[in-house]
Write a protein that binds this DNA or RNA. Structure first.
Length: 282
DNA sequence: TTTAATGTTCATGA
DNA sequence: TTCATGAACATTAA
């Protein structure tokens, strides 16, 4: 589940169930999910006894604030959380549950990830800004944080295809393969247009489309394209508003031309060959 | 059987 | 340095 709207809704769900919970122990069934320097046992011991003070988010990363550390969780393609109060804990864990947080009140938080691509990283409190700076995560796509002048300055430094550059998280955080296609369609920009030759008008429209679409998708609970569910098991509703993602062969809502699908940067890319004019070469 | 799937990260070579 | 490409990670479903 992956892009910012889905991660934000996961965060909101987690916030409702795990705040104030103290970690009693953790079962790790797939060690590769954990980024650790020493041993898994040491990693677990460092977390035991700590209480979840808040659940934050930066881009597509979840940040659990504990007493002494920050636990950073990235869901990658298929990561999900499921919470079970004491009386509802299943006899047997699901096949793809790879991590179980046992809390002192008897409840559990299960991390489920079919493809095992997700990652957990423990960092010291106060190191979040440095952590995200090293990952080159751009500003949040909100009206307050996403400055159009900085965005423009970033774009003119890249000769890459605009879709590729947006997926890098550098110019702005949180866009993935679904929303990047939506945003470019909304802005009438061809996915392979070079980032550095977009016009002021195009950048302005793109900037606003990113803010609007991310806000709208988040408000609707994200998009359930394949398997996304929030922590409460609910689907998103934004998939009903997708205009081009997965719509190849159907008429463009703006001009009626059939939506096409191509590969850009190895990713399936949906666009309208009529509305989205290619500028320069990518 | 083959391919593609909401994501990042690393190696290699231009 | 920068970027493109491909592979890796691992599993499922069409």
């Amino acid at each position: 589940m992956p892009e910012l709207p889905e991660v934000e809704n996961t965060r909101r769900g987690l916030e409702q169930v795990v705040l104030g919970k103290t970690i009693q122990t953790i079962d790790v069934f797939w060690e590769n999910l954990i980024v650790f320097e020493d041993s898994i046992e040491g990693w677990i011991q460092r977390l035991v006894g700590q209480t979840i003070q808040s659940v934050g988010r930066r881009g597509k990363y979840l940040v659990f604030q504990l007493n002494n550390d920050l636990l950073v969780s990235h869901l990658r393609m298929e990561g999900k959380y499921f919470y079970f109060p004491e009386q509802t804990i299943p006899e047997e864990k699901e096949k793809h549950t790879h991590l179980i947080f046992h809390f002192t009140d008897g409840s559990q938080l299960h991390y489920h990830d079919v493809r095992k691509f997700g990652r957990f990283e423990l960092i010291q409190k106060g190191y979040a800004p440095l952590f995200f700076q090293q990952k080159k995560i751009g500003p949040e796509p909100t009206a307050e944080a996403f400055d159009i002048n900085s965005f423009t300055a970033s774009l003119i430094q890249s000769k890459r295809a605009i879709k590729t550059y947006l997926l890098s998280q550098v110019p702005v955080a949180g866009l993935g393969n679904i929303y990047v296609d939506e945003v470019l369609w909304m802005s009438h920009i061809h996915p392979e247009s070079r980032a550095d030759i977009l016009t002021i008008e195009q950048i302005s429209l793109l900037h606003q489309s990113i803010i609007d679409i991310m806000e709208r998708a988040t408000a609707l609970g994200g998009s359930t394209i394949r398997t996304y569910r929030n922590t409460l098991g609910e689907q998103g509703r934004y998939q009903d508003e997708l205009q081009v993602y997965g719509k190849q062969g159907t008429p463009c809502p703006k001009c009626g031309t059939l939506i096409e699908k191509m590969k850009v940067h190895g990713r399936g890319t949906h666009y309208c060959p009529q509305c989205q004019n290619k500028v320069g070469e990518a």
